[in-house]
């Protein structure tokens, strides 16, 4: 079984639209939407949810105003400036509160409050799902707003997808990866067999591509590159492909700029399904060349 990941150094390069189309071209794949911060694949693939589980990760401090004696020890110790003084809701006495979204869940305040006035509940940080789609089974997730540790959730989604593949004897797990080069991306790439980086022919696209390729290189994952909307800046597209080659990656095709991509998205269809001829052909070529490349890669 192979696990192949589609990512883009920066978001909005058409990665998800492309992945949805590739899903339609892969005959026997399990899909994994690991762009858990902004999961969009389900908008095209309309999954039929079979299983839903809470995703729990980490703890959050919250101060019980009734028990706080206002000593301020917690605020002095918290290195994330997450605790600030406030007035008690009923008598106006000085108490302390934890600011929403600022707590890292380190527990320092909890263990050091002299009167044990701080609760430390495990957080539900989102949910993950196993679903059926018209292009095969899919594992996906939703991270709660402002939650952290999406890296862990990414690993979990991949693990689910691999399990489906094993159970149903499918030979490919196709992963829609997160943007950036941080922990979610590392979690999406670690141990994968290949990565396709989707980029645009812009100066920022080129810049982000090189950062992502450095990461793929560091993790020793064979990297392919596809330029989306290449015809916006053909010379830049040439330069990016040359830079990608120099960084050890293999270009596997270009996709043109075509409003048909947005039109397909609005109809909830993949580009292949929406029957946009030349655009769909570009994507078929990328798929074929990527598969040929992935077959040869170790």
């Amino acid at each position: 079984m192979k696990e192949l990941v589609v990512i883009s150094g920066k978001g909005g390069t058409g990665k998800t639209s492309l992945t949805a189309s590739l899903a339609g071209l892969a005959p026997n794949a399990v899909l994994a939407d690991c762009d858990v911060d902004a999961a969009d694949l389900h908008l095209i693939l309309a999954p039929d949810i079979r299983r839903r589980e809470d995703f729990r990760s980490g703890h959050r401090a919250s101060i019980r105003a009734a028990d706080c004696i206002g000593c301020g020890r917690c605020a002095a110790l918290c290195r994330y400036n997450a605790i600030a003084p406030a007035a008690h809701p009923s008598d106006g006495a000085r108490v302390f509160t934890v600011e929403a979204g600022a707590c890292e869940g380190c527990g320092v305040c909890v263990w050091n409050c002299p009167v044990n006035a701080i609760d430390f509940e495990e957080q539900v940080c989102g949910a993950w799902f196993v679903s059926d789609t018209r292009h095969g089974p899919m594992a996906h997730a939703r991270l709660a707003p402002g939650a952290e540790n999406s890296g862990k959730l990414v690993s979990l989604v991949r693990e689910q997808a691999r399990e489906i593949a094993k159970r149903e004897n499918r030979d490919l797990v196709l992963v829609d990866g997160p943007p950036g080069t941080g922990c979610p991306v590392i979690a999406a790439l670690t141990g994968a067999h290949g990565v396709l980086v989707v980029t645009e022919p812009t100066v920022s696209g080129a810049h982000d591509l090189l950062r992502v390729l450095a990461l793929a290189g560091h993790l020793k994952i064979p990297a392919a590159v596809c330029i989306n909307k290449w015809d916006i800046q053909p010379e830049q597209a040439d330069r990016i492909e040359a830079a990608a080659r120099a960084a050890g990656a293999t270009p596997v095709g270009r996709v043109r700029y075509d409003k048909a991509a947005t039109a397909a998205q609005r109809r909830g269809l993949t580009i292949i399904e929406a029957d946009a001829n030349s655009l769909a052909d570009d994507i078929r070529t990328v798929w074929k060349q990527w598969m040929d490349f992935a077959k040869e890669a170790p």
């Binding site: 922990c183 979690a187 670690t190 020793k220």
Partner: peptide
């Protein structure tokens, strides 16, 4: 054989 160095990329897996 006895493993004398890590043989998988770590991080989250």
């Amino acid at each position: 054989p006895v493993l004398d160095k890590p043989n998988s990329e770590g991080h989250w897996v």
